[in-house]
Deep mutational scan, measured.
Amino acid sequence: FSITQFVRNLGLEHLMDIFEREQITLRVLVEMGHKELKEIGINAYGHREKLIKGVERLI
């Protein structure tokens, strides 16, 4: 299971460039909250919320 699959499953594949540029893996994403996601350029609250909720389902 990769970050690419995870992001695609959430319908947020347009954010993949950010994850690749910042070298974010699923392991790193698990540790990130709204503040960190915003810092790397994910400005939409809804997108950040989707990512965080998606990660919570993985754990």
Rank of each mutant, 00 (worst) to 15 (best):
Glu20Arg: 13
Phe19Val: 04
Phe6Ile: 05
Gly54Lys: 04
His14Met: 13
Lys35Asn: 10
Arg57Asn: 14
Glu39Ser: 12
Lys53Val: 08
Leu12Ile: 05
Arg48Phe: 06
Lys35Met: 07
Gly33Trp: 03
Lys53Gly: 06
Leu12Cys: 05
Ile24Gly: 01
Gly46Lys: 14
Arg48Met: 06
Val30Glu: 08
Tyr45Phe: 14
Glu13Ser: 12
His34Pro: 03
Lys50Trp: 07
Gly41Cys: 06
Leu15Ser: 01
Lys53Pro: 00
Phe1Cys: 15
Ile3Arg: 02
Glu56Gly: 09
Ile59His: 09
Leu26Ala: 04
His14Gln: 13
Phe1Leu: 13
Ala44Asn: 15
Leu58Asn: 03
Glu22Trp: 07
Lys35Ala: 10
Thr4Val: 13
Leu26Asp: 01
Arg57Phe: 10
Gly11Val: 03
Leu29Tyr: 03
Leu26Trp: 14
Glu36His: 05
Asn9His: 12
Ile18Thr: 06
Met32Pro: 01
Met32Ala: 04
Ile3Leu: 14
Gln5Val: 11
Lys38Gln: 12
Met16Tyr: 06
Gly41Asn: 03
Gly46Trp: 15
Leu15Met: 05
Gln5Phe: 08
Ile24Asn: 02
Asn9Cys: 15
Glu39Val: 07
Glu36Val: 04
Glu56Pro: 04
Glu22Gln: 12
Glu31Leu: 14
Arg27Gly: 12
Val28Ser: 12
Leu51Pro: 00
Met32Phe: 07
Lys35Gln: 10
Leu10Gly: 02
Thr25Lys: 05
Phe19Asp: 00
Phe1Asp: 10
Ile40Ala: 06
Leu51Arg: 00
Glu31Gln: 15
Val30Lys: 14
Ile59Phe: 13
Ile42Asp: 02
His34Met: 04
Glu13Met: 11
Val28Phe: 08
Lys50Tyr: 04
Leu37Gly: 01
His47Lys: 06
His34Phe: 04
Leu15Gln: 01
Ile59Trp: 09
Gly54Asn: 07
Leu26Glu: 02
Glu31Met: 14
Glu39Leu: 10
Gly33Leu: 04
Glu20Thr: 13
Phe1Tyr: 11
Lys35Thr: 09
Lys35Gly: 06
Leu15Val: 06
Leu29His: 04
Ile24Leu: 08
Glu49Arg: 11
Met32Tyr: 07
Ile52Ala: 01
His34Asn: 03
Arg57Leu: 12
Leu58Tyr: 13
Gly46Arg: 15
Gly41Lys: 05
Arg27Asp: 11
Ile3Lys: 00
Ser2Lys: 07
Asp17Ala: 14
Gln23Phe: 08
Met32His: 01
Arg27Pro: 11
Lys53His: 10
Gly54Thr: 05
Leu12His: 00
Leu26Phe: 12
Thr25Asn: 08
Val55Gly: 06
Phe19Gln: 00
His14Ala: 10
Ile42Pro: 02
Ile59Met: 14
Val30Arg: 13
Arg48Lys: 02
Gly33Lys: 09
Leu37Met: 08
Glu20Tyr: 11
Gly54Tyr: 06
Lys50Ser: 09
Ala44Gln: 15
Gly46Asp: 15
Leu37Asn: 02
Arg8Gln: 11
Leu29Lys: 02
Leu51Gln: 01
Phe1Trp: 11
Ile59Ala: 09
Gln23Ala: 12
Ile24Trp: 04
Gln5Asn: 10
Leu26Val: 07
Glu13Tyr: 11
Leu51Phe: 04
Ile52Asp: 00
Thr4Ser: 13
Glu39Trp: 07
Ile18Arg: 04
Ile24Glu: 01
Arg57Asp: 12
His47Met: 12
Ile18Ser: 03
Tyr45Arg: 11
Lys50Asp: 06
Phe1Glu: 09
Ile42His: 02
Arg21Phe: 06
Gly41Arg: 03
Arg21Gln: 08
Leu15Arg: 00
Phe19His: 00
Glu39Pro: 01
Ile18Pro: 01
Lys53Trp: 10
Val7Asn: 00
Ile59Glu: 07
Val30Trp: 07
Ile3Phe: 11
Glu20Leu: 13
Arg21Gly: 05
Leu26Lys: 01
Asn9Val: 11
Ala44Ser: 15
His34Cys: 04
Glu20Ser: 10
Gly33Arg: 08
Val30Met: 15
Ile59Cys: 14
Glu39Met: 12
Val55Asp: 01
His34Ala: 03
Glu22Ala: 10
Asp17His: 15
Arg48Ser: 03
Glu31Ile: 10
Ile40Glu: 00
